[in-house]
């Protein structure tokens, strides 16, 4: 069961990184959501940061906002109560 969980997590994480490069933004967002809902996944933060690093113009003004990094923080920390219900025991 645990092995299956880890495999799913790895596949989803890989899919998240690849979809950040190849697919429209809603695909990595959905993958991040799935990962964050099912696992206490630090990968979500890295996928969010990766999307912003690749596509967001650099600048000190923080405009436009790094939406995917912020979204990853929200997914990872705000979903904690819901995630507790879905976590593998």
């Amino acid at each position: 069961m645990l092995y299956l969980g880890n495999t799913t997590r790895c596949i989803l994480a890989l899919l998240g990184f690849l979809s950040a490069i190849f697919f429209p933004p809603y695909v990595p967002l959905a993958v991040m959501g799935l990962l964050a809902l099912r696992f206490r996944a630090w990968e979500v933060l890295l996928i969010g940061l990766c999307i912003d690093f690749v596509w967001l113009p650099a600048g000190l003004s923080l405009h436009p906002l790094p939406l995917f990094t912020i979204g990853a923080f929200i997914l990872v920390w705000a979903l904690e109560p819901i995630r507790k219900e879905f976590l593998l025991r």
Binding site: L45, F53, A58
Partner: peptide
Amino acid sequence: RRRLFFATLFVVVLFFADLISGGHLR
């Protein structure tokens, strides 16, 4: 939870390091 906390910290550090370096990391 501790791992997640350190990952969050790591991402924040990376983000600001990139801002300060003028976008070198990205």
